[in-house]
Amino acid sequence: MEREAFVQALTQEGYSEFVLVTREAGALAEHSHSFEAKALILSGEIELLAAGEERLYRAGDVFHLAAGQPHAERYGAQGVQSLVGRR
């Protein structure tokens, strides 16, 4: 998905906060957020472990996490950069 289309779609869904997130290669232990998030991967890759399922996301992919959903993150060798819509 393209960045512009992502922002337009999320704005129509009621997302009003957009944050550019950059992570170096590595991992983040299980945690959760108080907000719902949809993220467009701009570069690199991220592997999410949520609800017992692992999934790899690369540039152009979009993932969704519900508010309060426990998950762990692993970032590829090049790290990852994403545009995250929050509500």
Rank of each mutant, 00 (worst) to 15 (best):
M1N: 10
M1Q: 10
E2T: 13
E2G: 14
E4S: 15
E4R: 15
E4Q: 15
E4W: 09
A5P: 09
A5L: 14
F6E: 09
V7I: 15
Q8R: 15
A9D: 10
A9W: 08
L10F: 07
E13N: 08
E13W: 05
E13L: 13
E13C: 01
Y15V: 07
Y15I: 05
Y15Q: 00
Y15H: 06
S16E: 11
S16M: 00
E17Y: 07
L20W: 04
L20R: 04
L20I: 02
V21T: 03
V21K: 00
T22G: 02
E24A: 14
E24W: 00
A25D: 08
A27E: 15
L28H: 15
A29L: 14
A29K: 15
A29D: 15
S32E: 00
H33N: 10
H33G: 05
H33V: 05
S34Y: 01
F35T: 01
F35G: 01
A37C: 08
A37L: 01
K38T: 02
A39C: 05
L40W: 00
L40N: 01
L40T: 02
I41N: 05
I41A: 02
G44I: 11
G44P: 10
G44H: 11
E45C: 09
I46W: 03
E47K: 09
E47Y: 02
E47S: 08
A50V: 14
A50N: 11
A51P: 12
G52K: 03
E54L: 09
R55A: 13
R55N: 11
L56W: 04
Y57F: 15
Y57M: 06
R58Y: 09
R58V: 15
G60T: 12
D61C: 03
V62L: 09
V62H: 07
H64D: 02
H64R: 08
H64P: 01
G68K: 04
P70C: 14
H71N: 14
E73W: 13
E73H: 12
E73D: 15
R74Y: 09
A77D: 13
A77L: 11
Q78D: 13
Q78I: 01
V80P: 05
Q81S: 06
Q81K: 07
L83N: 01
V84K: 06
G85K: 00
G85L: 04
